[in-house]
């Protein structure tokens, strides 16, 4: 999950198992609201990988991933921006 990560801060995201919707981890739970997403530092990656695994095992989410952030806290990659905002056309 964290193999090719660059950058220093991230959101933890996934798809909701039942609906497939894009969700973000807010520190307790998963929500479609990105503004509630918890900012994670590089040093915390392993801890949050374990958290993601726990929710996967509980059949809450699938396909967890870390979303790279810019210094100002905005999402860096186009793919992740599309996941957040929806289609671009």
């Amino acid at each position: 999950m964290a193999k090719k990560l660059k950058g220093d801060s991230f959101f933890l995201s996934a798809n909701d198992l039942k609906t497939g919707s894009v969700v973000y981890y807010n520190g307790d739970d998963w929500s479609e609201k990105v503004d509630k997403a918890k900012k994670i530092n590089r040093s915390e990656i392993e801890e949050y990988e374990n958290i993601a695994k726990k929710f996967e095992d509980e059949c809450i989410i699938i396909s967890p991933l870390f979303v790279e952030l810019n210094d100002d806290g905005t999402i860096k990659k186009l793919r992740d921006i599309i996941r957040k905002n929806g289609t671009t056309f």
């Binding site: 497939g20 793919r79 996941r83």
Partner: peptide
């Protein structure tokens, strides 16, 4: 069985694919 936790995603994935179901960026 998947939703109830009796199948893992690893076990379920080949079954859903056989029924044309993918997981894409935003949804299934």
């Amino acid at each position: 069985r998947r939703i109830d936790g009796n199948l893992t995603e690893e076990e379920f994935k080949p079954l859903r694919l056989m029924n044309g179901l993918y997981l894409q960026l935003h949804a299934y």
